[in-house]
Design a binder for these strands. Structure first.
Lengths: 238, 238
DNA sequence: GGATGTGAAGTAGTTCACAGCC
DNA sequence: GGCTGTGAACTACTTCACATCC
């Protein structure tokens, strides 16, 4: 906890959401044997301006090399430190339906410090079945004391599920149900809502923002576009 | 297309991302027989301040009743109009793996005007199987001319899949692969990246932002980017 | 030369506070 | 009285432009 690895620098929300993207790019760059990357290249690949990249990275301390850019290995390390990838976070998934199973089976979801500890469901037909090496547990039974619970239950059930998990001492939730939940103060919840993402995209399509005007694209807070293609091609060739 | 249903009012990105939440709340409120809701109630349920609610709704025109709040039915209608729920958007899903199947089977995903037209995959073992009443088509074959493609393919494949869909005339993408894709100018892409969402949540847990400080809640992708403007500039210059 | 890091300026979004209307 | 709608103030983030350093 008392790791003086990083100034207690409070990162801004947009910065936090971009760091994982930079990290992923650095990962790919490293795999291809490139040892450094500059803010322009990183910006094109991430879909942001070079200035934004430099501001984001400057918030992690000054480790860029003037004249040549950022060392890829150091870049990865700094982001990992800032985001806490070195720590392990125990995670449970609640709801072993289609989505829950898809998440657990994905090899992209539980990475960078997140460790799956158990999967729960209410349905007797599902309890006891195996998902990605985990035997599905009865949600009414004891709950593992973890950091984060991933909620993949139906919207109608999610509030009561969250309530029970709160009594079990869980303080952070990633909620995939299309339903806002209420929690005691001091608890954290983050929402992922597919249908809203789709609706937002459709809005942009309907209004010229998409196919008409200058290319828009949005992500979890990241816009992309443009000459990035050239850089990407360069990467793919090597 | 030329529906004069709404002033050409350009909604802000954060507003757009909150409107679907309000709409969902209105839906539930209506189901329970309540006929009006005020900005404080709506704000509590949505996790935002009453002022923000009022600003968001004022952008759709003034339809609130001073003294009593917003009529639930009108609220639903106005949001539906603004977001284009009345129009139908044809959608295809590319990639019938765990995630693709989970999305297609979900009854929350394809709603509010989104209509599933076809599901594609490359894998001969998957082609021809049935998913939610759709027979999975060969991705190498002809592609239905739709508005939006939902990409549920592996990260390594997603760029080439998008490239092919561009040649088939598709202009908007919802990308679930953890990989930024590049598209010609004027195309739209929106990203959903589970692992990044989880990482952001873990960051908040690690730093006091979550369990310590005042109750945090983050909604989905508050896509805060004016980077669009810079992208346009870049385009204009080139 | 070439890229970082950063004050200063600009812009978008939120919150305050209150006039106006039901 | 109660709640909306909105100018004004404020806050947060991005972009510009350039001094700085390898």
């Amino acid at each position: 906890m008392a790791n003086p690895r990083l100034l207690k620098r409070q990162l801004s929300e947009p910065t936090i959401s971009r760091l994982p993207i930079y990290e992923r790019i650095a990962e790919g760059w490293e795999r291809r044997g490139r040892s450094s990357i500059d803010s322009t290249q990183l910006g094109e690949l991430a879909g942001v301006t070079p200035t934004t990249v430099r501001r984001d990275l400057a918030a992690l301390g000054s480790f860029g090399q003037r004249g040549s850019g950022y060392d890829v290995a150091i870049l990865k390390t700094r982001i990992a430190e800032a985001l806490g990838y070195d720590q392990e976070y125990d995670v449970i998934v609640v709801g072993a339906g289609n989505l829950g199973r898809a998440l657990v089976n994905s090899n992209n979801f539980l990475t960078r410090g997140a460790k799956l500890v158990a999967v729960y469901d209410q349905d007797p037909k599902v309890i006891g079945t195996e998902v990605a090496g985990q035997v599905v547990q009865d949600f009414q039974g004891p709950i593992a004391p973890v950091t984060v619970a991933v909620l993949c239950v139906p919207a109608a059930a999610v509030q009561s599920v969250a309530d029970r998990l709160v009594t079990q001492g869980i303080h952070a939730f990633l909620n995939f149900a299309p339903q806002v939940i209420s929690l005691p103060p001091g608890y954290a919840v983050h929402y992922v809502d597919f249908s809203i993402e789709l609706q937002i995209l459709m809005y942009h399509v309907a209004n010229g923002t998409g196919p008409l005007g200058g290319g828009v694209l949005h992500s979890l807070g990241i816009a992309t576009n443009s000459a990035r293609r050239s850089v990407q091609r360069t990467l793919e060739k090597s």
